[in-house]
């Protein structure tokens, strides 16, 4: 299974500045991709495109080689396969309890209550949230919120997981725990695309790197080659 960006140009609604100007990249199942680049270089925009929230003005997005049409059915299919965890977990959790929040995605996919319940428990177990299921979302710590936001997406069993700065601001223990979750995910065949400013992590963890600059892909390929050279910040 692959997700392909082909010459994607995109502007945000109500603005005519191109946020992405001709991005091409292909991501395959089970890959671990580090997405790096300055703030404003287009990393977050790329995630919105991957999930079908932004529609390219030019170029196209392909899921398994088939061009994504932006009707209801194919958007639903795209969102079943491609999950996004956004930067601020507080903007993604809206339910009163952890259990309920994680159940939103599976129910949106039209699963039965029993199936949804099984998905919730599975995702919660993967993210180490077994103890917290009954907790109100507003009483969670920052690290817990991150994991709940992650579980909410994983409960939809995506084949591609985009995570925006997921580990920023986490303490080293929590960071290791989250990385461990991502590890298990990619072992199960899910592609993980992590936007990060941590170049050390990107080199060490990823097996593919995409360096974005000013709405374009500056370089992509093996992390050792892409993330080295005089242009590197470190």
């Amino acid at each position: 299974m692959t997700l392909t960006f082909r010459n994607v140009h995109v502007t945000y609604p109500g603005s005519d500045r191109l946020a992405l100007r001709g991005v091409s990249a292909e991501i395959a199942a089970g890959q671990r991709v580090a997405l790096v680049g300055r703030n404003g270089s287009g990393k977050s925009t790329l995630m919105l495109v991957a999930n079908g929230i932004l529609r390219p003005q030019q170029g196209e997005l392909l899921l398994d080689g088939r061009s994504v049409r932006y009707d209801r059915r194919s958007l639903a299919e795209l969102r079943r396969q491609v999950g996004v965890v956004f930067q601020n977990p507080d903007d993604q959790l809206f339910s009163a309890s952890v259990y309920q929040d994680i159940s939103l995605g599976p129910l949106n996919l039209g699963l039965s209550q029993a199936e949804a319940r099984a998905r919730v428990l599975q995702a919660a177990e993967l993210c180490g949230l077994g103890e917290l299921l009954e907790r109100p979302t507003h009483a969670l710590s920052g690290g817990e919120k991150v994991r709940v936001a992650l579980a909410g997406v994983l409960a939809m069993s995506p084949r591609f997981l985009f995570a925006d700065e997921l580990i920023n601001g986490l303490d080293p223990w929590m960071r290791r725990q989250v990385l461990h979750i991502l590890e298990r995910l990619s072992a199960s065949g899910c592609a993980v695309i992590l936007a990060t400013h941590d170049w050390g992590l990107a080199r060490e963890w990823a097996d593919y790197a995409i360096w974005m600059d000013a709405g374009r892909v500056f370089r992509q390929g093996k992390p050792q080659t892409v993330l080295s050279g005089p242009e590197c910040p470190d």
């Binding site: 999930n51 929230i53 958007l75 969102r79 999950g83 956004f86 993604q92 809206f94 939103l104 995605g105």
Partner: peptide, 9 residues
């Protein structure tokens, strides 16, 4: 929140 909800189908 709207964006995040859309992303969750």
């Amino acid at each position: 929140l709207e964006t995040a909800l859309q992303a969750r189908a």
